[in-house]
Amino acid sequence: MKHKLLPLSETMHYILLALREPLHGYAAMQKIEEMSKGSVILAAGTLYGAIENLNKHGWIECVGDAGRRKIYEITAEGRDILKVEQERLSHILSLYEGSEPNEEV
């Protein structure tokens, strides 16, 4: 069976993408706001829960701290997940472009 976090939700997707560079939680939220052109603004509880969850599954890890804030970064396993998701999404995108019409019909 598929991993329970797959396919990635928009929130999880953005967090993994943002944490390709090491950031603390609030900075990740700001980065995501910028990356999504203001369309994804994470709330505190959502961000906290997502970080806990991704950390638990070993897709991100704590790499240090800045004062009281913990800094997180994506792990190798997390990058593999992003690869899988990238392939899935590019396939769907290719269907949009019509490059693979209904071959079997």
Partner: peptide, 11 residues
Amino acid sequence: GQDELFSDRQS
């Protein structure tokens, strides 16, 4: 204006 604890359906 950002007054909720949760911003998506899953959380």
